[in-house]
């Protein structure tokens, strides 16, 4: 009971502090929590806004999905093959510390300001943590486990799919969870840079026009999206890797 109530209480507490701070400061650019919350139904009820938000979600889903589908096999292969790791490692080392949003102007020059550019930026943001965690997970797979599989007659490819993949799954899903949050971040960032549609577009347009209620309401909406996605993902993750979880665990999510 307290476990379920705790995150709700934390949210209520945060809103309360916001409300009091805003009342104390009396600034035009800092609406109260209640004002911001009251604006949410207006945004969600507006067809134009809804189309924008759904477009964001679609790009995020596609970017995240393709990134996961490409990164897991790549990371696992890197973890099990020195040659593959030697080839891709330097490449990733160069891309890793570069903020993906910083690449956007270049990508925009090539691919325009449309969906492809934004989805590509999300893809880049999600790929690296998923590759890294898949790589680490595959590297840590016990050699003897693979030998046991080989003795049963599993081919190298079968061992990669049927032993390395499940054995590394807890680590892979940790990477995916980081990737999911990064997908949300890169989604908003990309829409901030190439304003055309999306949740980030609503937010920054409202900022330009001084509609601070809408700005804060959008922050709440995006935040809530993040929390819901993370909670949903955490549920799926927990189901998939129940076999690896310690008996008692500190939940670090809202699921």
């Amino acid at each position: 009971m307290t476990r379920r109530a705790a995150p709700v209480l934390a949210c209520v507490g945060l809103l309360a502090v916001w409300q009091i701070a805003s009342l104390a400061l009396e600034s035009d650019s800092f609406p109260t929590a209640l004002e911001a919350i009251r604006t949410i139904p207006d945004i969600l009820g507006d067809k134009e806004s809804l189309i924008n938000i759904l477009a964001s979600l679609r790009r995020m889903t596609i970017g995240f999905g393709i990134a996961v589908l490409v990164s897991i096999p790549l990371g696992l292969s890197m973890g099990r093959s020195r040659a593959v790791a030697a080839f891709f490692n330097p490449l990733l080392m160069v891309v890793y510390p570069v903020p993906k949003a910083a690449l956007m102007p270049i990508i925009m020059l090539w691919l325009g300001v449309g969906d492809i550019t934004k989805t590509l930026v999300i893809f880049l943001g999600v790929s690296l943590p998923v590759i890294y965690h898949s790589f680490e997970g595959a590297k840590a797979v016990e050699e003897k486990m693979l030998w046991s599989g080989a003795a049963m007659g599993l081919s190298p490819l079968q061992r990669l799919v049927r032993i390395v993949l499940p054995a590394a799954l807890p680590e892979i899903l940790t990477g995916c969870r980081t990737g999911l949050v990064l997908a949300l971040i890169t989604m908003i960032t990309s829409e901030m840079i190439a304003r055309q549609s999306g949740a980030g577009n609503i937010l920054f347009n409202a900022l330009d026009m001084g509609q601070y209620d809408t700005v804060y309401a959008m922050i709440i909406i995006v935040g809530a999206m993040g929390i819901c996605l993370d909670a949903a993902f955490e549920r799926i993750r927990a189901r998939l890797v129940r076999w690896s979880e310690p008996q008692f665990d500190m939940p670090l999510s809202f699921s």
């Binding site: 016990e142 003897k144 486990m145 030998w147 054995a167």
Partner: peptide, 13 residues
Amino acid sequence: RGPVFQEFALFPW
């Protein structure tokens, strides 16, 4: 030839 290792090497999943 079937191996049995000191580390068990079971499939934990």
